[in-house]
């Protein structure tokens, strides 16, 4: 076992950057899709603000469908779709598409569960005050659930960090890929240790930021 110091740090930094990029972009895009989806799941359900059985069943089934596919299979299964979106089926950008499709339905469910924590009485009170459904969503549901949504997004982010490790399959790079291709396949134990430590650090920092923000939001 020999340490190539010339190569070691640049490779680590590049992989870290790729991981953060993949997770960051995927998280943003998945939230953009998952948040409205979660809201729709809550307001269209039975007894919801805009009850609509057909719509609820349709959205719920789609969410369940995508949530039941293991990420590694999703990654290869949607390759043609990925190529259509980003013009290539390999590289960091190509990894983002399956990551989004993987985590958007997950975020939808997390948002749904956060919104369901808002006491029905509070929603009823807003209705009794003559609030429109949109006002209730924007000014009651979201602010009341925001602290919990942030905590749940933290969970989703950590899930994304994990999933992004499989991005190596489509040449996405990142820390997970580095650990597999160098640390595991080439027996470079120091790379393995460094990447794992970095992943641990990323998860710890993410959780800490999430906890702090969530607490802060509860009391603006």
């Amino acid at each position: 076992m020999q340490v190539n110091l010339m190569d070691f740090w640049p490779r680590i930094w590049e992989a870290t950057y790729q991981t953060l990029l993949m997770v960051g972009i995927s998280l943003a895009a998945a939230t953009l899709i998952g948040l409205p989806l979660g809201i729709i799941l809550v307001v269209t359900r039975q007894g919801g603000l805009l009850e609509n059985k057909t719509l609820f069943r349709a959205f719920s089934s789609v969410v369940n469908f995508f949530r039941s596919i293991p990420f590694i299979i999703l990654l290869v299964a949607i390759l043609p779709f990925t190529r259509l979106i980003v013009g290539s089926s390999i590289g960091t950008a190509a990894a983002v598409v399956p990551l989004v499709i993987f985590s958007a339905p997950y975020i939808a469910r997390l948002v749904e569960s956060s919104l369901l924590e808002v006491k029905p009485g509070v929603i009823e009170a807003a209705e009794a005050m003559g609030a429109t459904p949109w006002q209730i969503i924007r000014r009651v549901y979201i602010p009341e659930a925001l602290s919990s949504i942030v905590l749940n997004l933290t969970i989703a982010t950590i899930g994304l960090v994990g999933a992004s490790a499989m991005a190596g399959f489509v040449g996405g790079g990142g820390l997970g890929d580095l650990a597999i291709s160098y640390g595991y396949q080439r027996f470079e134990t120091d790379i393995m240790i460094a990447t794992v430590l970095l992943l641990v650090l990323i998860v710890q920092i993410t959780q800490t930021i999430g906890n702090f923000t969530s607490k802060k939001i509860r009391r603006q």
Binding site: K119, E124, A128, M129, E144, S147, R218
Partner: peptide, 19 residues
Amino acid sequence: RQVRKRIGMIFQHFNLLES
């Protein structure tokens, strides 16, 4: 909704916005 603004309502569990 306009008429509802002229009818106030209070509740057993208050139903205030916690945030």
